[in-house]
Amino acid sequence: MSLILLIEQVLNGLQFGVMLFLMAAGLTLVFGVMGLINLAHGSLYMVGAFACAAVATATGSFWLGLAASLAAAAAAGALVEIVVIRRLYDRDHLDQVLATFALILVFSEATRWAFGSFPLYLNVPPSLSGAVTLPGGIEYPAYRLAIIVVGFAVAAGLFALIAKTRLGIQIRAGEADREMIGALGVDIARLYTIVFALGAGLAGLAGALVGTIQSVQVGMGEPVLILAFVVIVIGGIGSIKGALIGALLVGLTDTLGRFLLPIVFATFMDASSATSVGSALASMAIYVLMAGVLVARPSGLYGVRA
């Protein structure tokens, strides 16, 4: 096992982690501010990916597609919030789960209606298609490196938004006491729509960025959604910082587990069974991590309430 390969895998883990962060940030914001559990977040990720693929194919520009993904997902998010989601804030979690499960069915079928069942493919933009040489002579795809940079930039922007801006103050106040900020004259309904659309836009961006690495298809959102749940459960629901730490932990655990576990098992097993045992255990690794975190801290690493 060479060190260069290991560093490459660490970078892959980081890339996976920041992508999960983009998903988890929206989920955790929506839960923190509105107390809503949103299963349809994965559908917004899918909407972003399809919007990017459709616009990039039509115009030939990946960057226009990227902008379209943000706009389309945020618009879909705002629409869904106004039509359905805002009726759910006062309901219990069971109703929220079921209603957003229904939204997944609606979104998936509507997308299949519009685009068909075949996966679409997105090309990496030419300016990012090559590999870059990192210090130490490591060749790494420029596009994946760009995702890492974008992810950390979005994280920094989100922290600044929450900590410094007027909207951020309202979001934090909304987490603490929604009746009070309503009484102070903040338009709660508008704030909720903005927060939901912000989370949706981030999910759409994640979908578009990943759409170039994987294929764009119906149902692509749900596996990522479940991983994003694992992230926010580990990080503590409602905490952006927890979402970032949790996302990086999950990304690195999953990627390095898939890489290292078969190698570890190969030291005392024959090669083929080591691969199957190692990969079977690696696919469970993040859930074991989550169970471990919960045993130690039932409300997550940075969670404040159970």
Partner: peptide, 30 residues
């Protein structure tokens, strides 16, 4: 025993995650 340490949304997500864990195990166990 693990999930009931939590409640509310955590419980929903954790039961989901454990089911996914078994699902992925079944997929990758030949």
């Amino acid at each position: 025993a693990l999930s009931l340490r939590t409640s509310g949304v955590y419980f929903i997500m954790i039961t989901l995650a454990f089911a996914q864990m078994i699902f992925f195990f079944a997929i990758s166990w030949p």
